[in-house]
Amino acid sequence: MSQQINLFNPRFLKQKNYFSAAALAGVLGVVLLGALAAGMVAKQRAAALEAQAAVVKGELAQSETRKTAALTELAPRQRSATVQQELDQAEAENRALLGVSAILDKGEFGNTRGYSAYFKAFARSRVNGLWLTGVQIVGAGNEIGLQGRTLQASLLPGYLGGLSREPVLKGTSFGHLEMNQPKPAAAVPGAPALSAAAPGGEGASSAPAVAPYIEFRLQAMPAGAKAEAP
């Protein structure tokens, strides 16, 4: 009987070395290249972030500058004494002008338009045989006095009618009328005496001559006054 002996031992087989120096070098090279690439990418991103941060920082600085300027402008300023005095003076002048305007509107200051319109009205209302010798106007025309002469008393109503049609005298009532014959002038020593001719032209009277006109006086009535009979 034969016996077989197995002399094969796996330990004696040639082993393959998968982690050789070349393989390790290749792996390390790949790792280094990856690390370098990652570092470059990170560096670029960091540079971009730094640039963005610089822009934001500049904008923030500008905002702070604008904020400071706005706060400076909005800060309460101290009033100038000169400006305050000018303002007070302007307000005082304005109040004075308003007061004057109120007085003028009420007519308390009298006639502010002058009296030329009254004299023009008197001139337009003239009547032949009647003339004025004096005019008195007080205040805003509420008191008007007229003195004059007329050859005939019958001319006065027509003259008053003409005055009543004048716009400036509208509403004015001449309620007081006085009429009188002038007194004869006193004889002057050494001068010839004036005498009135007797009826029929016969002889002369020793009485002084009578003036050939009648003097009259008109006075405008204040509001609410009662007319006086002549």
Rank of each mutant, 00 (worst) to 15 (best):
A123C: 03
A123L: 03
R124G: 07
R124T: 07
S125Y: 02
V127D: 07
V127I: 14
N128C: 03
N128Y: 11
N128S: 15
L130K: 00
L130F: 05
W131M: 02
T133M: 03
G134S: 12
Q136F: 13
G139R: 14
A140G: 06
G141L: 06
G141I: 00
G141Q: 03
N142C: 02
N142S: 13
E143A: 12
E143R: 14
E143D: 07
I144D: 02
I144P: 04
I144L: 12
I144E: 04
L146D: 06
Q147T: 15
Q147G: 13
G148P: 15
G148Q: 05
G148H: 05
T150L: 15
T150F: 01
T150M: 15
L151H: 08
Q152K: 13
A153Y: 00
A153K: 14
A153S: 14
S154T: 13
S154Y: 04
P157V: 06
G158T: 08
L160M: 14
G161N: 15
G162E: 13
L163V: 07
L163K: 01
S164M: 09
S164P: 00
E166R: 04
P167C: 01
P167E: 02
V168M: 08
L169I: 10
L169G: 01
K170R: 09
G171M: 07
S173E: 11
S173T: 14
S173N: 12
F174L: 01
G175K: 09
G175N: 06
G175M: 08
H176P: 12
H176D: 15
L177G: 06
N180M: 11
N180V: 07
N180F: 11
N180Y: 14
Q181G: 04
P182Q: 06
K183D: 10
P184Y: 06
A185N: 08
A186D: 03
A187R: 00
V188E: 15
P189V: 02
P189Y: 08
G190A: 01
A191N: 10
P192W: 04
P192T: 03
L194S: 14
L194R: 11
L194H: 13
L194G: 06
S195R: 12
S195Q: 10
A196R: 15
A196V: 15
A196W: 10
A197V: 15
A197G: 07
G200K: 00
G200A: 04
G200L: 09
G200S: 07
E202R: 12
G203M: 10
G203L: 08
A204L: 14
S205I: 01
S205N: 00
S205M: 02
S206R: 13
S206T: 08
P208I: 01
P208S: 09
P208E: 11
A209Q: 11
A209M: 10
A209N: 04
A209C: 04
A209K: 11
A209Y: 05
A211N: 08
A211S: 06
A211Q: 09
P212F: 02
